[in-house]
Computed example of a mutant assay.
Amino acid sequence: MDRSLPPRRLLILSCSATKRAGPKYMPAIDRYDGPLWQTLRTTDPDGRLASVAVLSAHLGFRDARTTIELYDAHMNQERADAMIAGGLGTRWPRPKTQPDDGIEL
């Protein structure tokens, strides 16, 4: 395998309730600290084997290199339905300037 080429695999992980403390903003791949994220950091520390994305109840679908704050949000059916209805092009979290759609952010 030619390691000079970008990875052709996409790994999508859910966010983790366990998060690491640290600076106010840090990459999601470093912030999340559940078992899958620990395994990922151990087996692919340089990000050469796969591109990694995260599905977060608070942030939606993002690249795992996106810097994030510490937060606590849980996925529920209403939030999942709203994300699905909006598709990948919908900004998440929803801007506070939009009318209240009944989804607690």
Score class of each variant (00 low, 15 high):
D2R: 07
R3C: 09
L5G: 00
L5C: 00
P7L: 10
R8H: 09
R8A: 14
R9Y: 01
L10G: 01
L10K: 05
I12E: 03
L13D: 08
S16N: 06
A17C: 09
A21F: 14
G22T: 06
G22K: 07
P23W: 01
P23I: 00
P23H: 04
P23K: 05
Y25I: 00
Y25H: 14
M26L: 14
A28Q: 01
A28L: 02
A28S: 12
I29L: 14
D30V: 01
P35M: 01
W37M: 12
W37A: 14
Q38D: 10
T39R: 05
R41Y: 06
P45N: 10
D46I: 01
R48M: 13
V52H: 04
A53S: 09
A53C: 11
A53G: 03
V54G: 04
S56M: 03
A57E: 01
A57D: 03
L59N: 13
A64C: 08
R65V: 00
R65Y: 00
R65N: 11
I68C: 07
L70T: 13
L70D: 15
H74F: 13
N76V: 06
Q77H: 13
E78T: 07
E78Y: 06
E78F: 05
R79P: 15
D81T: 06
A85K: 07
A85N: 07
G86W: 08
G87W: 12
G89F: 06
R91G: 00
W92K: 04
P93E: 05
P93S: 10
R94D: 04
K96P: 01
K96F: 15
K96N: 11
P99K: 03
P99G: 09
P99D: 05
P99C: 08
D101E: 09
E104G: 14
L105D: 13
L105V: 07
L105T: 04
